[in-house]
């Protein structure tokens, strides 16, 4: 059931990616109902699979959950911001992540897991949701910079036509950061709770990476909200933040082999 659900979701996310990318290849844009309906159907199948993956042991379930949140944000971006171009990133990302999860192996771990309480599961879910929001902020920032470049260079091609207005992308970036920061904060607090109140052992790498994500996201929100950065400067801040989180993760993953529970 877990594998079937994931394969169905994989197929539907791949189809969504094709629908989103088709206009860039000069084909007719898909109707909005399809751009919303196909990923929603994929999410429904995906949710069935993810629900059976608790307590989220290992990398594969985490990747699967991240893919689910990215698909969710793609649908939300299209529904609320008419920003189907977000799917240019989220579509392949969600498809790739779910494919990677399937390659790594998604069979639930039958071994009893000490300390995997509902709080622990909530900590993982909320943290990944925060990470997905940081990814969405990065995507909105990247789209912003691409559209900015086209508008400044007076190129009126596919990006100009198919990407949302600059201001809307800036709003999406702002919203992702402002909602993402409290989410990551909650995830970090839950992590401390699980570690100290629950007595669960946590790898140092996990703590370092979690705290770094919180600090970086806090900085990105700070410059937007407190220092009123907007537009291109804010977009660069978001991209730098996400790149830092990603690079530190890779560095930790490479330097601390054997930390199987780290993501």
């Amino acid at each position: 059931m877990v594998l079937t659900s994931h394969f169905v979701a994989l197929g539907l996310y791949a189809l969504t990616t094709v629908l989103v990318l088709a206009p860039f290849a000069g084909l007719r844009s898909a109707p909005r109902s399809l751009l919303l309906g196909v990923p929603i159907a994929g999410m429904a199948a995906h949710l069935l699979g993810v629900a059976q993956l608790t307590p989220f042991m290992g990398v594969a379930p985490t990747l699967s959950m991240l893919a689910l949140f990215l698909a969710l944000f793609q649908v939300a971006s299209e529904a609320a911001f008419r920003a189907s171009a977000v799917g240019v990133f989220t579509g392949p990302l969600a498809t790739g992540l779910i494919g990677l999860a399937l390659l790594i192996g998604l069979v639930p771990d039958a071994r009893p897991v000490a300390g995997r309480s509902p709080w622990s599961i909530l900590h993982i879910t909320v943290s990944i949701l925060g990470l997905a929001m940081l990814a969405l902020a990065f995507i909105a920032a990247a789209l912003y910079l691409l559209q900015f470049r086209e508008l400044k260079a007076k190129r009126f091609g596919q990006v100009f036509r198919l990407f949302p207005p600059l201001e809307r992308l800036d709003q999406l970036n702002h919203l992702s950061l402002v909602v993402g920061f409290p989410t990551v904060t909650l995830g970090v607090l839950l992590g401390f709770g699980v570690r100290y109140a629950g007595g669960v052992s946590v790898d140092a790498a996990q703590v370092v990476w979690g705290m770094l994500m919180w600090l970086v996201l806090g900085w990105a929100v700070g410059v937007r909200v407190v220092r009123h950065w907007a537009g291109r400067r804010a977009a660069f801040a978001s991209i730098a933040s996400f790149a830092a989180v990603l690079l530190v993760y890779l560095a930790l993953k490479l330097t601390t082999p054997g930390t199987q529970r780290f993501l």
Binding site: P165, L166, Q171
Partner: peptide
């Protein structure tokens, strides 16, 4: 159209 690609 151009203004509509800058402002929401």
């Amino acid at each position: 159209t151009v203004a509509g690609k800058i402002f929401t």
